[in-house]
Computed example of a mutant assay.
Amino acid sequence: MTSQSSLESALTPSKGQLGAGRLGSSVYGGRPNFVLVRRDDAEGATHTLYELLPAEQATARSDRLERTVQNRQLVIEPFEDVLVESDSPEVDRWDWEDWTAVKIRRLSGSRLRSILPLIHETLDAAGVNDSSVVGSGQGEAFLPESAGIRLALGFLGVKPIQRVDRMRSFCRGIARMSDEECYYWHAKCRSPSSPNGEKALRVLLTDHIN
């Protein structure tokens, strides 16, 4: 059996792997790369995290994933369908024609409650007002790349966890990561050639809990 320490040593990024030159910037001229959407329905509050991509790029990524990983595909929605009722100034600030919202995960219940501190801390560090997504009703928060990638790790990793103490430990671990570590693990979790990236991250951050 692989120990936690050996797993961490094997999967911790080296300086050459980090690609730190990408951090905190966008290849799309400063436009937000992610959006966090809050909705209330009969079952209570839900938070859904989306990555924002041009349609052509989203389709190409989906095709690569389907060729590499059987029975796995991206959920791609038109930008206007996801944000049709949004009054965020970011909707009018940019031209979103032919852009899509790629669904990362939707959380509710105990998983959502466990990740709320990470959401608050991440948005606060990015200078994003979180009042639209932590109150009641519906709202959206557009996020810069680094904040979106940190939350993507949280949303991806916490979804399969059953125990609340493990959920909270996982989210605390993501909050403690540097931006460089978040970018590394996000690449591992998203890559079709690394199908166990999410599992490895969960083991790294929760395996100490009996």
Rank of each mutant, 00 (worst) to 15 (best):
Y28I: 04
A58K: 01
Q17Y: 01
V69L: 15
I76W: 01
S86C: 06
G29E: 03
G21W: 10
A55C: 08
G29Q: 01
A55W: 01
V91P: 03
D63K: 07
R72G: 12
P54D: 03
F34H: 07
L52V: 08
R67I: 11
D40P: 01
Q17P: 02
H47Y: 08
A10P: 10
P54H: 05
G29N: 05
R67Y: 09
E90W: 01
A55Y: 02
L53R: 03
A42E: 10
G16S: 11
R39E: 04
R39P: 01
R61A: 14
P78C: 11
A55N: 08
E51M: 08
R39N: 04
T68S: 15
W96P: 03
P89I: 04
A10N: 10
P78N: 08
T68K: 11
W96R: 06
P78I: 12
R39F: 00
V91G: 05
L18P: 01
G30Q: 04
S25K: 12
S25L: 10
G24S: 07
D81Q: 13
L53A: 05
L74P: 09
R22H: 09
S14L: 08
Y28R: 09
V35N: 03
T12W: 13
D92M: 11
K15S: 14
P32S: 09
R93T: 13
L65P: 03
L65E: 01
E80Q: 12
V37C: 13
G29F: 02
S62C: 14
P54C: 06
V69C: 13
